[in-house]
């Protein structure tokens, strides 16, 4: 569906990504992990074609429908808009009058219902919790009926319960046949639950299943810090190795 071959990306001649090759297939459910500033969002922008590579080639299937869920931090929450208006804006119309038709109202209601926020349609976006805001943007993306869904840090700033809900929701969408690529720096809460991971730090450090990628060596190469990897109920758990242990009472 999308193919990056030996791609490099830069902002103002400052290279952010080098020699990246990455393919998005129909059955993809991938997490891009890496430290802040490693080029995770840049990789998403290359996939979305909102950023042109300075080297390499990007190929996208003709008429491919993609949708994007941005980081919550990049949104102006004081913008005068209700949940209904926000979701509807992604629906193209060729009508002269801009207001929603009955068919469009039903479509928005159905997608809000699926995401469990149907009763919030007339609320202002600032009145929602972090999880509800994330669901609203997912609803806006789903209204486009995308083949590929790209999400930037979808679990950033949400509680554990909401994180589980979002993960299950994304798994359901993937089951329905949607390719999903997301960025995250949440290793235990998100990355280890995904079927496929790509570790990025200005280049692709490693690529594979969590059991192949979540190792002390790969994580140190990706994040530049020692981390211990444990096994718990068949899943990988990452533990930070503190450089110096904290000893209470040292100040006195």
């Amino acid at each position: 569906m999308i193919r990056l071959d030996h791609v490099a990306a830069a902002y103002d001649h400052h290279r952010v990504l080098n020699d990246v090759s990455f393919h998005v297939h129909e059955d993809q459910f991938t997490g891009i992990v890496g430290p802040s500033g490693a080029g995770k969002t840049t990789l998403l922008r290359l996939l979305l074609a909102t950023l042109k590579p300075v080297e390499g080639t990007v190929w996208r299937a003709p008429n491919l429908r993609t949708a994007y869920v941005p980081q919550l931090e990049t949104v102006s929450w004081n913008f005068p808009i209700t949940v209904f208006e926000c979701v509807l804006m992604s629906r193209k119309t060729s009508r002269l009058m801009p207001w929603a038709t009955n068919k469009e109202k039903k479509e928005v209601a159905a997608v809000l219902e699926r995401l469990g926020i149907a009763d919030l349609a007339q609320r202002h976006i600032r009145e929602l919790s972090g999880g509800q805001q994330q669901r609203m943007f997912l609803a806006r993306a789903l209204l486009r009926q995308p083949q590929v869904l790209l999400l930037d840090e979808p679990t950033s700033g949400v509680d554990v319960s909401t994180r589980h809900d979002i993960l299950h929701l994304l798994a359901d969408l993937h089951e329905d046949g949607m390719a999903i690529v997301l960025t995250t720096h949440d290793l235990n809460g998100m990355a280890t639950h995904l079927p496929h991971l790509v570790c990025v730090n200005h280049r692709i450090v490693a690529d594979g299943t969590p059991s192949q990628v979540i190792t002390s060596e790969v994580l140190e190469n990706t994040f530049g810090a020692r981390m211990e990897v444990l096994e718990h109920l068949g899943m990988r758990v990452v533990v930070d190795e503190a450089p110096t242990p904290f000893t209470p009472g040292l100040r006195n």
């Binding site: 994007y68 941005p70 990049t74 808009i81 806006r140």
Partner: peptide, 11 residues
Amino acid sequence: TFDPDVAKVSG
């Protein structure tokens, strides 16, 4: 006006 980056992606 609200979200130019996502608007671009959405055509």
